[in-house]
Structures are given as C-alpha cells and as structure tokens.
Design a protein around this nucleic acid. Structure first.
Lengths: 356, 356
DNA sequence: CTGTTAGCGCTTTCAA
DNA sequence: TTGAAAGCGCTAACAG
C-alpha cells in the first residue's frame, strides 16, 4: 500500500524477509504460523520483525485471501440502550473470535439501511448481523442480494418472513402473552397495549410495514385475552409510531373512550412515554392503573413504584447472533435457517397490582 | 480478491471494461469519476457496470490508494448509554462523510485497549476516536505509537495529558463547580461527592490512574467548596471504583461518620448506585438528602423526585470528534492540539432542595 | 523445508 | 482522450 501523504512508510513483509535474510514466503510462513518453517529461521524472522517494528497489513492480507475478518452490525440506533446492548454483546463475542465490527445506524430508514448494507458489501465484510427496519412481511431486496452474493446474514431482534437466514429473537408471542396473563390474573379485564401492530379500527388489520416484534407481541396480547374470553378492543391499542419519538402514543389510549385499568407497554420508549403520560395526568400507578413494561433497565427499579418488567436477554441475543454468524462463515454456504428463540424473564415488582 | 469457498465471483472492473469494450483504466476513470473520459464512453461503461451488477471492491481500492475510509471508534462499553450516545453521534457524522466505523469495546481494560488499537492499525484505519481507559496522567504507549505512525487520533470524553491530540470534552471542572454551587446556594455545607478521584484520606492524593473526568469534576467540586470557605472532607468523597459495577460506592459516604445533607453524583452509574443506596436506607430525597446527578437520561424525570441533573451533550461530543478527525485526515499531519470544551446544561428539577 | 512466482482488483503514471 | 503496464503487501501454488 502506498502511504498517503503524511504517513511514514510502514515496514513490509519483504523488509522483514530481507532483514532476516530469508525469502518472502518463509517470512510469511513464520509470521503467519502456517506451513513448514525451521525453528531457527522462524526465530530469526520473528525478531527481525519486531526489531524493525513490523505490523502485518490486514488490507493486503484480505486482498490476497478474500477474507476480511470484519462483519457489519446494523441496527436502528446504537444510542438506544436496547440496541446498544445487542451490539455490545455481538461485539464482545466477535472480538474474541478476532473479528472486527463495522457498526452502522439506519435510523429505521429503509433507504439508509440499503445504503449501509451496500457499503458493507463493497467493503467485503465476511457477514452481516442486522435488525432490519423492514416490516416482517416485506421483501428486503438489499438483504436478498447480499444473501445471493454468498454473504452470510444473521437476523437479530426482528425476523423477516421472506429472508432465509438464521434468526435470533425473543419469544415475543410468549412474552407478551405471559405479561398479559399476569395482568389478567390480577383481575384486569380492560388492558391497554401501547405500541401494538394494529393501526386502524380493525385489530386484525396489520400494516404491511409492521415489525415482527410488534406483530408478535400484539399476537401474544390477543392470545391471552381471547383465551380468557375477552374481546380485543381497538380503542385499547396504541399503534407503534412510525417516528422514533412516540411520546404521544399513549394519549389515544389514556384519553380515549375505553378506560383501561392496566397497561402493557411493549418497548422501552413506550414505557417512558406511558410513564410520562400517567404523571402528566396525575394518574397513580398502580393505584389508578397497573403497568407491565418491556425491556428491563437499571432505572426501572427506581421509579415509584418500581416497575414490573419483561426483561429481554439483549446482550445474549447479540452474542448468540455472533455465534450463528460464525457458524455460517466457517461452514461455507450452509444456509441453515435456524431460529433461536430466547426466553424473556418476568421481573415482578410493584407496578402491577390486583384490580380493586 | 479470490472468492472464498461458497462465494460466487463478483464482477471485477476488468469485466466491466471488457463488457463495455474499453480498457481497464478507462473503466476505472468512468466509474471513479476522475480523469478524462468522453461522455460516450463514460455512459457505455456506466451501464455496462450495472448491467453485469458490478460492485466496486473497497479492499482493492484501499490496497491501491492506501486509504481505507474507515475509522476506529473505541470506548469502554457501547452498552453504557453515555458511550452509546458518543458512538452514535460520531457514527452519524462519519457515515455522512462516507466513512465507516469500526467500533470496539475495551471494558476499561488497558490491555484490551492496546489490543484493539493494534487491530485497528493493522486494518489501516484512517483515524481513531477514543475515550481511553488510561488515567489522565498516564502515558499511553499504544496511542503514541499510533500517532507516531501518522494515524490521526482524536480524544473524546476523556483527555490525556501526555498525548498531543485534538480533544473533545465536557467542561468538567466548570460543570462540577456549578453543580456544587447550586447545592451551596441552597444552603448545603456538607456535600458528598460520589465517584471523585480521591482515594485515600488525603483528598489531594490523586491516584495515577484517575480518569480526567474524575479528576476534573473533583477539582470543580473542591473549587466551589473552597471558594465558599468550606473545607473538603475526605470522608465525604467516595472514590470511583476500579470495577465497572460501583454499587457499593455510596456506602462509604452514606454510612460514614460525616453526615452529608447533599450529594453530587458525577456519573450515571454513580447516580443509580446512590439512588439505590438511598432507597435501601429508607432515606428520602430531597427530604433527607439533596441530590444533583451527572448525565441526563430519559428516566431521570420519572423518578421520585424528578432529578436535578447535569446534562452532557454526549451525541454532540461524538459529532464534534468526528469533525475534528475529518479535519486531521484531510490536512496531512497537521497536529493541531485543539480542545473543544463543550458546556453542560444544568436541568433543575426537584431532587435538590433548600437545606431546612 | 525454502525460495520463486504469479496473482488478488484497483489506481495511476506514462506513452500512444 | 485512451490504454498498457507497473505496482500496493500479502498469500499460495509450485518447483527446488
């Protein structure tokens, strides 16, 4: 590699070879630790290397081998603690395997997502781990073309119906069902869902761009209600906002004609918005309204009351995704469409109380 | 690049050239948008390119130019919301400049930090943005060698006395001073500091590995006290724990012989730990103890009482760091040791009240 | 076991 | 304006 202006030349393998008085290939074998090299030469090469301050050039290596040992990790926004945790988990696992992470934010924007994926492909990443902004039932051309190209892809957090790739997700249906049942068992019958997938007046009318998480949690919520013979009321469901800030989301439910006695908030932002909504209306919890929230965070035990939450194993999801990707990368083109469905953990604190 | 097992060959520039019936160089110029190419040929090349589905190979490009258009972003842990925000800000800015981010966690471990920096250098990154785990007064060989190598480095969040690199930080001294003064103005005289830099009984004895943020906030705290003629009492200072979990940090202060009437918590984890400590001891806030906390987070207005906080412009710090790095990367070897000291914002809510 | 050689895909002089 | 050719630093046959 030519050194760009300002950068001094770095020692190359040839120089090491020269300094050690051996051929390039021998130096390469000694440093790369492959093939046969006599102990004597290996030693000579090794300390010739660090005596001149040699540092292997990964770009050149990739160029020759076709492997970059880098993967792309793409999420909506690393600033969101949930995604941050996913990324962190993946990063740790990958780094331990000697793989670097190119992380990219999409801001839930499909155009941007396509662009970043394209950038990753140009960079020849060995694989991609992604929580796509695409609706569960949408087609995702940029991922399909990547897949077709032979680049391993692993989905985490959100699944995609039309993409044949290993997926690591929460058991969203089960988690939402169990959370709803907890409320049901406390005697609640009018349970609101904040950030479900349903849009219009017909609860069965799921928008095309709904995320798998929304759909599945909505599903679990419905399952619980109907199996208790309770009707699903559209007026109790606040849809997931398309914008990132969903601060008004709870409004529809809190100020609507139906009067919930309990709320299930299925995403961290929804929880925050709900809590603000309650406080703003001087509603007490669990006095006026019980609450069960998704996504545990250190602060959820510090609110008044401490929150009953559905904890997602987010870092673990990142780690498992990394492992699945690794498997894909090592076994060439084995398109095992595995699904890892991780269990939630229900942490019962004080925000959900018996209906009086 | 040879295609590793499983990956189909991607079309190369040569194939585009052939398909368009021109020489490689011409195709390269047309696609790269540089040098002279006649309109006719440019067009022919361009649609030959996407008719065969050509995608430029960034690795080969880097190999030839010596530029990777990738930078390393390293922090202790992206799962920490503060760092996540720093990273997110930097990522956004860099991506808009067409630069990819390799993000790496160090877990506050210097050995790991040295390793990831080394990995970044092997990858030939064009620059590094880092919040080092090193103490402010420590030497950081891995960064110095990088700098000497000509790789631009920008420090964010934490500064390093011995590294000659642009730095983007909060005005820590001022922020801590103003926060302390707020408490002072409310009549408090016994103010505890959670996560200061001081270790032993002598408050002036600052450990070698103390972070610049700890030292500077400690400094601001002392400044405020002494300028009000108040003595700095070691017993009121809980040191920053070396471990990442500092849940017992407040213990020393809360259960010690001195009895603070107010607390200044200078880091998010410290705030959490303090809040838990108060709750555990059934101490009310601001009734028994006033509190001012660093790092605003969406939940700080939802606790009881809502917290008076010192908000750091974390995403902005990431963005500014990206801009500074960009400047360094474009102007070869201009080692402007600039310091961007961003202002905090004091958000007054209810956790700090007048001393009765 | 070791050295020579031929690329990897792209950029970039340098002639034509 | 265009094309031929020489690398960038490393790996990987292949021959010695």
């Amino acid at each position: 590699m030519p050194s760009p202006p300002g950068k001094p030349d770095q020692p190359t393998l040839s120089e090491v070879a020269e300094a050690a008085g051996v051929g390039r290939a021998t130096a390469a074998r000694a440093l790369g630790g492959y093939g046969y090299v006599s102990e004597a030469l290996r030693a000579r090469v090794l300390d010739a290397a660090d005596s001149i301050g040699y540092r292997p050039n990964a770009v050149a290596r990739s160029m020759a081998t076709g492997v970059t040992e880098a993967v792309g990790v793409v999420v909506a926004d690393v600033a969101n603690p949930f995604f941050a945790s996913l990324v962190s988990g993946a990063e740790q696992e990958l780094r331990n395997m000697g793989i670097d992470c190119l992380v990219a934010n999409t801001g839930e924007d499909m155009t941007r997502e396509a662009e970043v994926v394209e950038a990753l492909l140009r960079r020849q990443v060995d694989g991609i781990i992604i929580s796509s902004a695409a609706g569960m039932n949408e087609k995702v051309p940029h991922l399909e073309s990547a897949r077709k190209l032979g680049v391993p892809i692993v989905l985490f957090d959100r699944s995609l119906r039309h993409l044949d790739a290993p997926t690591v997700v929460l058991d969203n249906v089960g988690a939402a069902r169990r959370a709803t049942e907890l409320l049901l068992d406390l005697g609640h019958r009018e349970i609101a869902l904040i950030w479900g997938a349903s849009m219009g007046d017909d609860p069965l009318m799921i928008p095309q761009d709904a995320l798998s998480t929304s759909i599945e949690r909505f599903q679990g919520y419905c399952d619980a209600l109907t199996s208790h013979g309770i009707e699903v009321k559209p007026g109790l469901i606040a849809p997931r906002p398309s914008t990132l800030s969903g601060s008004q989301a709870p409004t529809r439910v809190l100020d609507g004609p139906e009067h919930p006695t309990a709320i299930l908030a299925v995403e961290a932002d929804a929880t925050l918005a709900t809590l603000k909504g309650l406080r703003h209306r001087l509603l007490s919890c669990p006095g006026d309204l019980s609450l069960v929230a998704f996504d545990d965070a250190p602060w959820t035990e510090l609110t008044s009351p401490p929150l009953t939450v559905v904890q997602q194993p987010s870092a673990e999801m990142g780690r498992v995704a990394a492992v699945r990707l690794q498997e894909l990368m090592s076994t060439r083109s084995n398109w095992s469409t595995s699904v890892d469905m991780l269990p939630e953990q229900l942490i019962v604190r004080d925000s959900a109380a018996p209906l009086l």
